[in-house]
């Protein structure tokens, strides 16, 4: 257990006294890519928010450890500083703060060192180019008036700038067209090449073929009921979640 880079141990989570996660176990090694799939309402987004430390999601049992340190009682900002990142399914709009200002502040906080303006501009430009984002996004207010696809790209931009140790991608592929998926997948791959760990939470398998994951997990009724490789995704694709439920959920 403990020798893993990131692990979740028998995690139980309540929202408003209702138990949503009922004992999730997950181990992620350094540089590994994991996919968590599951039907709507299985607890996927709850898992994503809980890992990042959303105050509405109450951990009633279990542990979340990154490099041997417990994250369970830390607020979201402290988790970010430890190296966690969440790509939001629905990124928030923040009026009056530009993408550049926000990311420079975020990088200063998460890395604990002041980011000088010019080198940061250069870094941002480089990362934006890789994601085929127009330069003008840097000076636009954070997510304000961005389309669904632009918001998702902007999440991946933030990930590539902040360079966390482990990134949770919550439904990053939803709302993206084919071209955008390809670009986002390339961004994720570049990130992954640097020995960073990724957990992709999704109910489609659009991103799968690009990412070549190490493991696929099926989350259902608040638990991971099956772990396997690409063949699991294929099975879901062919038979649907109901069949999976019958087969694996006892």
């Amino acid at each position: 257990m403990g020798e893993h880079f990131f692990n979740i141990n028998n995690l139980k989570v309540n929202i408003d006294d209702k138990e949503i996660l009922k004992g999730v176990n997950l181990e992620v090694g350094k540089g590994e890519t994991h996919i968590i799939m599951g039907p709507n309402g299985s607890g996927k987004s709850t898992l994503a928010y809980t890992l990042m430390g959303h105050p509405l999601y109450k951990v009633t049992n279990g542990e979340i450890n990154l490099e041997g340190e417990s994250l369970k009682d830390l607020s979201a900002d402290k988790r970010a500083i430890k190296g966690m990142f969440l790509s939001f399914q629905y990124p928030e709009e923040v009026d009056g703060v530009t993408v550049e200002e926000f990311l420079r502040t975020a990088k200063t906080k998460t890395w604990g060192e002041m980011q000088r303006i010019l080198p940061f501009k250069k870094l941002l430009k480089e990362k934006m180019e890789a994601l085929e984002m127009d330069e003008s996004y840097a000076t636009r207010y954070l997510n304000l008036g961005f389309s669904g696809g632009e918001k998702k790209k902007n999440e991946i931009l933030q990930m590539s700038i902040l360079e966390p140790k482990i990134a949770i991608l919550d439904e990053t592929d939803s709302g993206l067209d084919v071209d955008a998926i390809r670009i986002v997948a390339q961004g994720v791959k570049k990130f992954k090449d640097k020995e960073r760990s990724i957990v992709v939470i999704t109910h489609y398998n659009k991103l799968l073929e690009y990412l070549a994951p190490d493991y696929i997990h099926i989350l259902m009724d608040g638990k991971i009921i099956k772990t396997g490789g690409m063949e699991l995704a294929k099975e879901i694709d062919e038979n649907g979640y109901e069949e999976i439920r019958k087969k694996y959920l006892k």
Partner: peptide, 25 residues
């Protein structure tokens, strides 16, 4: 609250996130 969480998830403390929102307003 969702906006606050979003900003905090990028490494800003609760107070810093609130300051950012007030300043931008």
């Amino acid at each position: 609250k969702s906006k606050l969480f979003y900003i905090m998830s990028r490494g800003l403390s609760e107070k810093e996130a609130k300051k950012l929102i007030v300043e931008s307003s």
